[in-house]
Write a protein that binds this DNA or RNA. Structure first.
Lengths: 227, 227
DNA sequence: TAGATTGTTAATCGATTAACAATC
DNA sequence: TAGATTGTTAATCGATTAACAATC
């Protein structure tokens, strides 16, 4: 019987947290293929980690398997969906409707999960007033007002680094609890506000480093860094 | 006197490697501001790590400071530029000219450093033959030929996950030594080929997890994960 | 029941931090 | 010279792996 632990006073290590989406992705693929059961050995081999690590990771959240059998793909997939919070919906605003912003807004798998964009903001007069994906692009100086009327879970910053901090300040003042930042800059936010940086250019620099420093060790590295 | 070590038989830990772009970014900001010197204490405090860690990290590559003085911003910035391989140029091809692909091709700071896109590929008949940023968009089935004529350092995959592996195979067969993968899927490549994944959707899932699991620990986390 | 595989505890490994001698 | 700060060694901390009793 799958049993989920309360997480109230358990601290989940960063490294574990970052592997959850990987489990989710592989389980989703197995589910789509109609596979019913999987052992920690099988799944971990596909992913390229040890079975120990996978079982240890899952143990932070509960017991989802069955001795002698393994895991029901469907059950484990659902468990991780809930652990990741992918069973609910989120309201998002996005500031900076450039190519990257448009890529995020139109990315179908975000909408297919519960990530709903409800406001787009930019300062370019050529964009303001036009529509993208059925949403009006509004001036950034109306963001504060917008946040008063419509509660938002996640603010996405795809604007230039020079204005990223100002935007973050407006989001925080407007009560947005989490910021997804693509600007290549750090953000100062009060304690309790969640910031997740996705620094695309840092990923390219790591690639460049690796090209110039042939490693003897294994060669495939997934991207996700932390501060 | 700054002295760079040979890296021939030193293995640089992943964690150290992922912090290099962060040092680079902060040093770039100091340089732009005209700051001449910085101590490990000052710089590490800005970044939010310990001075020990920063000095330990740098020691993998050489000695760049001066006792009693600290580091010359200009020298350390140049040293890290070279360590990251940002002093040379790279030829890139990009496969999948959707919004994300266009965002990368038109991102000015890639071109300003040495990252030069020399070929764009897509399979959409509406795109093939048209131009973006001065480059013709070519059919994917001409990629193999293209790679024979024009040596490429980095292949960027911004295509749907279903075709990502096929594209990777063509890149590898064409002698491309490094792949920058944005498709939400793992790639199988021969040993020695470098793959850097930037899974944007995993970053969003981590954000969602953190929204649902209030941590007591510190709140700001930079993104970059590994496989 | 016998075989398989989990969940968890203990051992190992690697990364971070502290401390300090070297030295500018 | 005295003060400051590096580069590096040693100590601590955390994450990964191995091992195994519990049990389906």
């Amino acid at each position: 019987m799958p049993r989920r632990k309360s997480l109230d006073h358990v601290v989940v290590p960063q490294a574990v947290m970052r592997r959850l989406p990987v489990y989710y992705r592989y389980l989703g693929a197995l589910l789509a293929r109609g596979t019913e059961r999987v052992s920690s050995q099988e799944l971990s081999r596909m992913i390229g980690i040890t079975a120990s690590q996978m079982r240890q990771d899952l143990s932070y959240f509960g017991s989802f398997g069955q001795q002698g059998y393994g895991y029901r793909v469907r059950d484990l997939h659902r468990a991780i969906t809930e652990i990741l919070g992918l069973h609910r919906t989120y309201q998002l605003v996005l500031v900076g409707v450039g190519n990257l912003g448009r890529a995020l807004v139109s990315y179908p798998s975000f909408a297919n999960r519960g990530f709903r964009f409800c406001g787009l903001f930019d300062n370019d007069p050529r964009l303001i007033g036009s529509e993208f994906c059925g949403l009006e692009i509004r001036p950034v100086d109306t963001l504060a007002d917008f946040l008063h009327q419509c509660p938002v879970d996640i603010g996405v910053i795809t604007a230039p680094p020079e204005v990223a901090q100002q935007i973050a300040d407006v989001l925080v003042a407007g009560g947005v609890p989490a910021i997804w930042n693509f600007a290549p800059t750090s953000l100062k936010v009060p304690k309790g506000v969640i910031v997740e940086h996705t620094h695309i250019s840092e990923s390219l620099m790591v690639l460049s480093f690796r090209l110039n420093n042939p490693e003897e060790a294994d060669t495939s590295v997934e991207s996700a860094s932390n501060q």
